[in-house]
Design a protein around this nucleic acid. Structure first.
Lengths: 351, 351
DNA sequence: CCGTGGGGTTGACACGTTTTAACCGTGCGG
DNA sequence: CCGCACGGTTAAAACGTGTCAACCCCACGG
């Protein structure tokens, strides 16, 4: 009956493990057609209750697990998104990743992790891999302005949300934290404590975050009627504790210390703090200190750090929400740029 | 000409984006058969140089990117592994993840990230998802002893390597760091500085790492001819700075401070340090302090922490190497348990 | 001149799922 | 009594790639 392809003697055994159980083994066991099994899996409401339980039992008995590749191939889209971060070593990004993973795990999505490690070449390579995996969407902290790359993705039907990066184009989703406001906040707080001279210890100003926080700091100075050059920049080559310590040592060697120091990063701030304490400078008595990010270790420093808290975890969660919403409803999706407001956390280093 | 399927009026447009270019569009453009394109992709040496460049040009022109789902489906295996960590918030695991990602990125594998968040239920859920994605192998920090789960995976042909966990069965790959040796090392160092009384601030002793490090510490005591109870345990409920601080406060309130404190974790150690300094205890003058893990922030603490360094990044890399080797050569693969040796890093908190 | 061998290439099928149109009773309104 | 709609189910056609037997062509030895 039907066309009996069964008899073909050239039939090879399945490529995968011999015992691979697919939808049709389940169907046979449940005395039903493969299509019905698929329906049980994807639209359970369309199948009669009695049949459904029979199929579900068969699934459990045989230990069937659906083949995602086949599903993705046929349906044209799977339940996978890509997450491309700048630097897996930075607590900021790992907190974001935690938010992304939590949200995805709850909604049954898989996260493919990729790190550009700040290298455009590696970003490209990983991007290609994500494209091959036919991810449904991508969360990305772009290394440079990769608007072009993202547009090409969009043409392929891959949604994208930019992380911690303001969108340069309107047809683009993005979530970020207002770094200008954060810088303003930090310096305004220092000024309210009657700081007259303030230093800004920062990473390279080519990094948007560093530049924005500086802009905010200057805005606060202007608002207080101080000259902009009341803020003294000290640029460190990288944003690590070591670099912060060295920057602070330079600063101390160079004349009388400022009343307060604002750091672009808690990692820098921890190094700065160490240099100050080693030099016998009292914190906050002689110099007030404030960091940025409010990473977990900030509160555990020798002198607990005041800092500007960013909702890192929330950033990841919201970005994922936006991305998945766009995936589920590409037409009626309004691209939006969400800008979180940072928050001042006052601790002992700048009470 | 050939079989003109074009004329069929019932032909639906492709499900995916209209412009989807597949292997056959490339073939047509290059004037060659789809099979040849596949060969160019997978066994370039079998195709004549001239044809190859023509195909490669066509690929570039059309912007073709291979469909990983179809490839995986047909070939029975893809280039994807799963990484299941215990806690994305812990720098230890993120460092491991960094190693895994680097290695995979270099070898063209994709990493699916999953976190069990120490919940067996969530571990199970994510495990199912990894199975659906037909990952080629899994790197896992098991929440409890999930030997059964791993065996079931293995039956499905999914390789597995346990991370930071000794294998309970011989047919199992595992990489770990010798925690007993680490504990020994730490306490031996403290003893060499003439510490007489030592406290061990630890997380729950049900955590293998905590228990092993304690065992090592006692071993060092015995080796020095001290009674085992020269080591006083102080158990904190979690391994965070806050918990460490509270534990140290309890310790100080409870009698004269010990000569030295060994912490199961740098996070705990940072909290302990803070408590000591607040209480006016000099470190290392009055109390020497040593942590574990040597996370980046340990060196940046108020008093830079001595610590036991674990090769976290290397752990991830090696584990990945072992996993991929097993994937590429399942038959001739000898399961092995690699045990790394930790390393004492001497800084000011216990010189 | 014919057979043979081998490098290149092709055609067609299979992988496991989703989807859609068709099918099958059955109850109901006309 | 006929036709129709409807809830359930099925058969079959894709989805895009990998693989393998078959094939073609040309050079070469007999």
């Amino acid at each position: 009956m039907s066309d009996g392809g069964r008899s073909s003697p050239t039939r090879r055994p399945a490529r995968g493990r011999p015992g691979t159980v697919g939808i049709k083994q389940v169907a046979q066991q449940a005395g039903v057609s493969p299509g019905t099994v698929s329906n049980v899996l994807n639209r359970p409401e369309r199948v009669a209750a009695a049949t459904r339980v029979r199929v579900e039992e068969a699934i459990k008995d045989l230990g069937f697990v659906r083949n995602g590749s086949a599903s993705t191939l046929r349906a044209g889209q799977g339940r996978t998104i890509g997450l491309m971060v700048l630097d897996l070593g930075n607590p900021f990004f790992t907190e974001v990743a935690r938010g992304v993973e939590d949200e995805c795990s709850e909604r049954g999505y898989a996260v493919i992790l990729a790190s550009s490690a700040a290298s455009p070449e590696r970003e490209g390579r990983n991007m290609l891999m994500l494209a091959e995996q036919r991810v449904r969407g991508v969360l990305i902290t772009p290394v440079d302005d990769s608007a072009g790359r993202l547009d090409r993705l969009r043409e392929r039907g891959v949604a994208a949300v930019m992380l911690d990066h303001i969108a340069t184009q309107p047809h683009q989703c993005a979530v970020a934290v207002d770094d200008v406001a954060g810088g303003d906040m930090a310096v305004a707080h220092l000024l309210s404590r009657d700081a007259r001279t303030i230093a800004y210890v920062t990473g390279p100003l080519s990094i948007r975050q560093c530049a924005d926080r500086r802009a905010g700091a200057r805005r606060a100075l202007l608002a207080a009627g101080r000259p902009e050059d009341a803020l003294r920049d000290v640029v460190a080559p990288t944003m690590t504790p070591r670099a912060g310590q060295q920057a602070a040592e330079r600063l101390l060697a160079d004349g009388p210390p400022p009343d307060a120091i604002f750091c672009a990063n808690d990692l820098l701030a921890m190094g700065v703090l160490r240099a100050l304490l080693l030099a016998g400078v009292d914190v906050p008595g002689d110099v007030a200190l404030i960091g940025y990010d409010d990473i977990e270790f900030a509160a555990a420093a020798a002198v607990p750090l005041s800092s500007i808290r960013q909702p890192m975890y929330q950033l990841g969660r919201i970005a994922t929400e936006m991305l998945l919403d766009e995936c589920d409803n590409p037409a009626g999706h309004a691209h939006q740029q969400v800008m979180f407001q940072p928050e001042l956390v006052v601790r002992e280093s700048a009470p």
